[in-house]
Every structure is written in C-alpha cells, then in structure tokens.
Simulated scan of single mutants.
Amino acid sequence: MAIRLRSVPSLLGACSMAVAALWPLQAHALFGDDEARRAIVELRQKVDASQRAADAANAANAEARESNAATRRSMLELSNQIEQVRAELARMRGQNEQLAREVSELQRQQKDVQAGVDERLRKVEPLRVEHEGQTFTVAPNEKRDFDAAMDLLRKSDFGPASAAFNGFLQRYPASGYRASVLYWLGNTQYANRAYKESVDSHRRLVSEFPTHLRTPEAMLAMANSQIELKDPKASRRTLEELVKAYPNSEAAAAGRERLARLR
C-alpha cells in the first residue's frame, strides 16, 4: 500500500504532461479555447486532489510507522523494566535466604547458650536429697564428692575411700551428709586397722548426731575397735551405753551378745 501511494504523484505527473502535450491538438479539434482551458483546469484540480490524497496517505503511513516505532520502544522499555524487577526480586530472595540462615544460626547459638546456662545452673543450684532417713539440700559438687567417696568404698578401696571422706569433711563441714560420712569414715579406718582413728570418728558421730539411725551401729563399731586396741573395759562400757540408749536397735541386740561373751 505504501509503495503504491508513493508512486501516485509521479504517475499523475506523467499523465498531466501527456494530457498537456496532447490536449491542444485535441482541444482545437473538438472544443473552443474556453472549453479547453476549463477542461485543463478541471484536470489539474483532479490531479491536485489526487496529490493531496496521496500526501495525506503518505503522512498517515508515516504516522503509523512512527506509532509502531513508539510502540516497539515502549515494549522494549517495558521488557527492560520487567528484567530489572526480576533481578531485584532475585536479589531480595537471596537476601531473604541469607537472613533466614542468619536467623537459624542465631537460634542455634541461643539454644547452645541457654543449654550452657542451664548446665551451669545445674552445677550450682542446690539439690534436695533424701539420705538415711533425712532430707536436706546439698550443692551439686557436694553430692558428686560424696557419691565418689561411696564408690571407692563399694570397690573396697579403703585407703582412697578414707582419704575421700576426710577431704569431704574438710570441704563441707556442715553438710547434710556429715553423719553418714563420719560413720563410713570410721568403717574405712577400721578396715585399714587405724582403730584409734576409727573410735574417734564414730565417737564424733555419737556425740553430734545421737538420733541418727547410724549412731547405734557406730557404737557397736567403736566397741569392736576398742577390742582391737586391747581395751575390753572401754569396749564393755560402750556396749552397755549402746544397750541402754538404743535398746530396741539391731545393734543393741548384737551388743548384748558380745557383753555376755565379755563377762
């Protein structure tokens, strides 16, 4: 269509020249001068109208081409904007993933810190224990040291066990385990043939904790150590005190039998 419209002026020009060349002969032959002039004017008006129509068509075609070019430019700009938005979304997605990893790491570190705090608190918070008929609170390391000394005793490691019980009394002189420690310390000393020390440990138990359930047994053990020390009179006195103070205990029943043998 554009090609045909652009060729219209040249075609019209050629036609006009041909008519102009031929017209005088024909005009003289067929019409008068006035009629010939009018015909030429009308023909030129038609040619001019055709030229204007062709120019308008060319202008419209040019405008359409410019509009198409503007549309292509707009589409290209829109495409570029879309790519920029995609790139920005990808960047933001990467940032979100990084933030998620950082948050996860912070949460893990927080859990580790909390676990560490809980562990430290467990190491220092008092523990409520029930032991040999008594209820009391102890520090975690206090319970640990007592359990370690008892483990040595159960293994019959009497020397290390005696040292562990002695150390415990020095570190925790007011411990709720004190009565039990004095009792087991006297027993390990007896096993190590430290009879005098054994009597001293058991006597401390009897003096400090007269109502403790281990006290009757400690008195019976004292009498045994006194026999080993070749002091039957002291052993007899201890057994008599045992029978008198704790008549219903199993230790008192054993004490009566030994008293009968000592007489």
Rank of each mutant, 00 (worst) to 15 (best):
Ala56Met: 02
Leu121Val: 10
Ala69Cys: 01
Gly116Ala: 10
Ala59Cys: 02
Leu106Ser: 06
Val124Cys: 09
Gly116Met: 04
Glu97Thr: 08
Glu97His: 06
Glu119Thr: 11
Ala29Met: 05
Arg108Asn: 10
Pro9Glu: 03
Ser16Ile: 00
Cys15Trp: 06
Ala90Asn: 09
Ala14Ile: 04
Gly116Thr: 05
Leu5Cys: 05
Gln95His: 12
Ala49Ser: 10
Glu105Asn: 14
Gln45Gly: 06
Ser67Ala: 15
Lys123Arg: 15
Glu102Leu: 12
Ala64Phe: 07
Ala54Pro: 00
Asp34Trp: 13
Gln109Ala: 10
Gln114His: 09
Ala27Tyr: 02
Ile82Trp: 14
Glu77Val: 08
Lys123Tyr: 02
Leu11Arg: 15
Asp33Thr: 10
Ile40Glu: 00
Lys111Ala: 13
Asn61Leu: 06
Arg86Tyr: 11
Glu119Gln: 13
Ala53Cys: 06
Pro24Cys: 01
Ala69Asp: 12
Ala53Phe: 03
Gly94Ser: 13
Asn58Glu: 12
Arg93Phe: 02
Asn96Ile: 15
Ala27His: 00
Gln114Trp: 03
Glu83Ile: 12
Ile3His: 05
Ser79Gln: 15
Gly94Asn: 10
Asn96Trp: 15
Leu12Phe: 00
Glu42Ile: 10
Ala87Thr: 12
Leu106Ala: 14
Ala70Cys: 05
Arg65Ala: 12
Phe31Cys: 03
Asp48Asn: 09
Ser74Ile: 02
Lys123Pro: 01
Ile3Gly: 06
Ala29His: 13
Ala87Val: 06
Ala54Leu: 02
Ser74Val: 07
Leu78Ile: 11
Ala21Asp: 05
Ser10Leu: 14
Leu106Gln: 09
Met17Glu: 10
Met17Ala: 14
Lys123Phe: 01
Arg93Ile: 03
Arg65Pro: 01
Gln107Phe: 04
Ser50Arg: 01
Val103Pro: 00
Pro9Met: 00
Glu35Lys: 10
Glu125Leu: 13
Asn96Arg: 14
Asn96Met: 14
